[in-house]
Simulated assay, not measured.
Amino acid sequence: MKIHTLLYPVDRLEPAIAFFRDTLGLPLKFRDGERYAALDAGSLTLGLAAGEERIVDRPALALRVDDLEGALEGLLAAGASLLRPAEEGPHETRAVLQAPGGQPLVLSAKR
């Protein structure tokens, strides 16, 4: 498992990109229309999620895994709870969990 993104839900993508890029100086790495933008935040990516890509209601760590089902099984056995089952996103397969402390976690695996 590797933390790769801080998924940050926003109401509208354009003003959020402008703030993080122009005000905070984070370079834009990738944009997918009005639904998602990735900014370079150093050792991880800040992923702005709007519209149908807003799969969490508050900031969440996104972890990349090789085996989504195996990772889900292990985390659920360790006390996490499932908020959204595995589903195909536009760029990966992902699931949303809640860690025992109450914070959301997003697991994703490349297709």
Rank of each mutant, 00 (worst) to 15 (best):
K2C: 10
I3N: 10
L6S: 14
L7E: 11
P9A: 05
V10M: 04
A16H: 09
I17K: 06
I17T: 07
F20D: 01
F20A: 05
T23P: 02
G25I: 02
L26W: 08
P27Q: 08
P27L: 04
F30H: 13
F30K: 07
R31W: 07
R31Q: 13
G33T: 05
E34R: 04
Y36K: 10
A37K: 02
A38K: 03
L39N: 07
D40A: 12
S43H: 11
L44E: 03
L44V: 12
T45D: 02
A49Q: 03
A49V: 11
G51T: 01
E52A: 08
I55P: 01
V56R: 00
D57P: 02
R58K: 09
A60S: 03
D66A: 09
D66K: 07
D67S: 07
D67Q: 07
L72E: 04
L72N: 03
A77V: 06
G79K: 05
L83R: 15
R84I: 13
R84A: 11
A86E: 04
E87K: 14
E88D: 15
G89T: 10
P90D: 09
T93A: 12
G101T: 13
G102R: 04
Q103W: 08
Q103D: 15
Q103V: 09
L105M: 11
V106P: 11
S108H: 15
